[in-house]
Write a protein that binds this DNA or RNA. Sequence first.
RNA 1: CGGGGCGUGGCGCAGCCUGGUAGCGUAUCUGAAUGGGGUUCAGAGGGUCGGAGGUUCAAAUCCUCUCGCCCCGACCA
Length: 573
Amino acid sequence: MRYSEMFLPTVREVPSDAEVISHQLMIRSGMIRKLTSGVYTYLPLGYRVIRKFEQIVREEMNRAGAQEVFMPTVQPAELWQESGRWIHYGKELLRFRDRHDRECCLGPTHEEVITDLVRNEIKTYRQLPRNLYQIQTKFRDEIRPRFGVMRCREFGMKDAYSFDVDSDGADLSYQKMFDAYNRIFSRCGLKFRPVEADTGSIGGSFSHEFLVVADTGEDGMVYCEACNYGANLEKAEIVRPPEPAGSAGGKAVAEVHTPDVRTIEEVCAFLGVTPREVVKTLIYSADGNAVAVLIRGDHEVNEIKVKNLLGCDSLEMAMEDMILDVAKSPRGFVGAVGIRCPVYADYSLIGMADFVMGANKEDYHIRNVNLGRDFTVKAFADLRAIRAEDPCPRCGKVLHFARGIEVGHVFKLGTKYSKAMRAVYLDRSGKEQLMVMGCYGIGIGRTVAATIEQNNDASGIVWPMQLAPYQAIVTPVNVNDAALAEAAEKLYAALNARGVEAILDDRDERAGVKFMDADLVGIPLRVTVGPKRLAEGKVEVRIRRTGEVHVLALAEAEEFVVRTVREGMKVPG
RNA sequence: CGGGGCGUGGCGCAGCCUGGUAGCGUAUCUGAAUGGGGUUCAGAGGGUCGGAGGUUCAAAUCCUCUCGCCCCGACCA
């Protein structure tokens, strides 16, 4: 492509509303433009990268035995009512009515549609397993879109759905997708980790997220280099500590007047104790019912764990009136002794004795509280957020913390949707069985953005060869010099003929401008055709990533570019 | 939705407090020179100051409402 004819508006200045590097660079390099909050247009350069990534995804999905379909964006409410998600999905589901006043939504995901298709068409175990995927636009009415294409409302997603006869089969399908995802992200040259994750609103029995390691990522993860355990912070397990040998504690309970002392810090300062000797009592409203969660003073609650333990749809900190109702005391003085709601204790309570707690009485705390003697709990569970000093739950070694961008998520759904929507088949004995499902997503635009997040420098984007919108750019230093123009033109034609996706920067611009644009846009190889070198029949090939420059005769330069591109495009066996 | 901030030529900003009819940089167009890391000079075009209403002789500036966008929390590919 000739640069002079391209629709490639690069911008020199950093856009004021772009926070993260990938967002800034996607705008500056002319990849995207915003239409409205969380909704973007891909310009030619950006769309080329998208298509390159989609191609990788298709190749790997097909290799893993999945077949491509294409489902609608507009979906009828009935299907969502059937699965139960018309109610449970929440406001991210964009709903509207058509002219006949029928309720519809824009698909934020396609479990309902695919399950409907498959239940209608697949009748026997002979037709299973099947894995169907699509690359399609999703709409999720995010509360707060941000970071450009990273978290937007309308976005491209690859979603695959597997259907198996039983749980073992589903595990196999899951593993195939897991492996395919590893290949996909590896081919993009990404540093990433698959980690155990919460299943959220999709549901199912377990899941893994693929997180691209980046400080700007919205997710936290822990991982263990010794045993390869990895988990999202939301999910990261904490092992149950051993029961203490003897029964410690046993001092008499003592009520203490603690006027206006509410927070853990205030309590500790006032009573001269450490947070490890204090137990926090947090009241939550779980689907409208009060529950108390006990946790050691120096720990934080992981609400997702609480939510999963209770199996509720909504969980929020209780309002003041609910607290007064169950604890007979305002926030800050709540304790478990005599409280009138179910009490759950984090594992950290095991082995604690003679601790401090709210007295359920305004301006009072109590000392020397002991679990079992002074109150009982409904259950002990892992309810707190993991911390740096916690050991790996699998092998006990040191855990590492990192941030990441969730680019993919694989779920073992089990029979959640097949049950709700009656997706059944006949087994060998002619008996009806529920299909066992899995679903597997990859954020297309988000992966591209994550790639930029990991591959950039002060001058701009540094594309890995497999995703580069163009692989090489031929830059005559001055197009008004006939010899330079001609040599560049010939080299450009030769590269194209040999399958290299090249740009000829034939603009009547100064060399500096062309270099800046080529670097910003991130083309992996640049061939500079200048007067001094050309007098000797030579040109320079510069490698964007390393800055390395090779001075080569024209024919050698052509060979070098072709070879480098082919190597970069190699697909791992 | 709660909290914070911003809307002024394409982009980045100043002007607003203390009303007097819009400016800087950059980009764009024309001409000339230049030609290996965003070159230089000369000239030109481009803004109902987010929108509506109000106060005033006079509003980008003050007041009210409204819309949009960004950042911090709950969502997730």
